[in-house]
Design a protein around this nucleic acid. Structure first.
Lengths: 196, 196, 196, 196
DNA sequence: GATGAATGAGCGTTCATTCAT
DNA sequence: GATGAATGAACGCTCATTCAT
């Protein structure tokens, strides 16, 4: 029977290799070497290279969902919930460089497969943002005329762009906390000065 | 003398092919066929496959810069300038599906070349956003505690995520105008309801 | 573990193909077909096409060195040693048509690699000639004013030109033995008639 | 009408380029650039790349033949004639690096075409050596049992190997004169010390 | 189950040759 | 005659995938 341990090892190795080289430049043998496994062994656990990529997402983003869900469960205030989501995402991206790169590099690589995939686990993650907005609107805390879907895209787009800039190596002179606060603040009260 | 017409034809073809298949899945012969030239002809105008990608950016993003610069020149109010930038970007992405895909798919290829490249033309485009924010702060229209760099990332990230969702084929029930207004509005006054 | 058998098969095939077509006209797929392996298999055993050429030399010339060294060990007389070298080389070239062609065709490829290479195994082979001359001089059998290096070049040049003519297809009406004796004789006593 | 001047310019350029890069690594455009002529122009004067190579030989070796023939005409003594041939060849090879490389690199490149060619002008050059030997034998100066064909091969092989070593960049601590004398001496009186 | 040698389709790129101007 | 842009066949090499052990 296939060992779940080896499955995990391969996923971890693939996450690292994809992050370092990008999906197309990563070779199966790189992943095999990183996982200390024979090339052929990988095909006992995955159908093909692309399947590995999908599994990396399932696994890693599943973890993200679990983690942030746990944090959000303890809080009722939508304002704070949004802040928690933002802070958690940024912190994770800063910590888990591999996942960050896999998301922002590989998520756009292509193609129908990814597109279909995105209707699954990853969209579940994004849906959390929309649901926070909706709860806030129901609670009268957020403006009703905001479309939760658009706001969700804004939030994720903003966060993902931030993490991309971090990992591109351009110096970013701000701490995670500062960035988190600024984004939260802009989202909450906008950029206008009081009398405008 | 190498014909500038052919150069343009190849760029156009490459934009289309990269958008449809992604950089790595695009074949030189695909581009050649699309441009109705021989494979070898491409190498009279470009050094290699990657050079084509860079040229596509230079060309297309140069156009974007020119266009939005022209529009912004006519306006002084930073609030409206920001709206103009947002609207123009979204409209262009909606219209020029190929450019949109090339940006959001290919901009993420890990590559020193792209990284270096991004310090050039593309960053020029992004710098426009930051400068609008700064002008607004100087004019007292935007909050001074906003970091223009972070806001810039938020804006571009949001817009890029929007355009990605459009082209991914997920139904987006909103018009360009609605999206543009919502984003502008969130950025300007935030998402909080009046008394929060 | 990569099979040494396959390594040998490829070397043998390459020797044949290089001899038949020359290095530049030889195709990797020709070698693969001749060796009855897949094209890609060749790259499990060699780094690139040029590496195959070098290996052919290492292998084949190594064999030549071993063989002639063995023969020379049994003999002390420098006169006879020289004759042995000459005869052995000519016999081998006559027998091993492929090696002969590889030497005289490929040895002349301008290439830093080959030049560096020649300082290794092949030059070892040539050095045998020089050392025979030197021994002869020490023993007082050969004239002391002969430069061993120049004589060495003469000997090898002569032998290589002979073998080239054989394989070029021009009829050569002499047996290996006759040629061997003539060359040995010219080298030993020159071409002058007794009273000149 | 095709200009003989341009024909000569291309030959000269090709000699240089072939010598520098070898036949297979030389590109038609290299030759065209060196000759300050358009690529296409070359095909007005030559049928194909290989034809250029043949023409280079015809031309350059023709010159060699003329030159050495002139020198030999003035001399009757076969001993001296042989010395003249040897000295002249070595001097030319030392002077005309391009021709030297073209001979020793390209002469072995390959193939049926070259082989047929060699029955022409180049063999004429080699025949000069044989005829000197024959004259010497008739005059009783050279041993009758020497086969002129074999001696010819020895002479040319020796000379060509010398010139190859020169151009390979290996240090050769001897002057042209020394080499010439040593080779002449070995050929004439052999390498044996007086009493052997 | 695990291995890693073997496979071979596939692609980026080169360059001799052609031909419209 | 001269040009040089255009052509496209050809090849070295890679690497995802398979399969005998």
């Amino acid at each position: 029977m296939k060992s779940p341990d080896k499955h995990r090892k391969i996923i971890r190795a693939a996450t690292k290799v994809f992050a370092k080289k990008g999906f197309f430049n990563a070779r199966i043998s790189d992943i095999a070497k990183e996982a200390k496994v024979a090339d052929g062994t990988i095909y006992l656990y995955f159908n093909n290279k692309f399947d590995i990529l999908l599994s990396v997402f399932e696994q890693e983003i599943g973890k993200l969902i679990d983690q942030v869900s746990l944090l959000l469960k303890k809080e009722d205030n939508p304002k704070i919930k949004l802040e928690i989501f933002i802070t958690n995402h940024l912190e994770e991206m800063k910590k888990n460089r591999y996942l960050a790169e896999v998301i922002h590099i590989e998520l756009r690589q292509t193609s129908k497969l990814i597109r279909e995939y995105r209707k699954n686990t990853f969209n579940e993650y994004l849906a959390i943002i929309a649901s926070i907005i909706e709860q806030g609107q129901e609670a009268g805390v957020f403006r009703k005329e905001i479309e939760p879907e658009i706001a969700r895209q804004m939030v994720f787009g903003a966060l993902d762009e931030i993490s991309r800039c971090w990992h591109i190596g351009n110096d970013c002179p701000f701490t995670t906390e500062e960035v988190s606060q600024q984004i939260t603040s802009i989202l909450q009260v906008g950029i206008l000065a009081p009398n405008n």
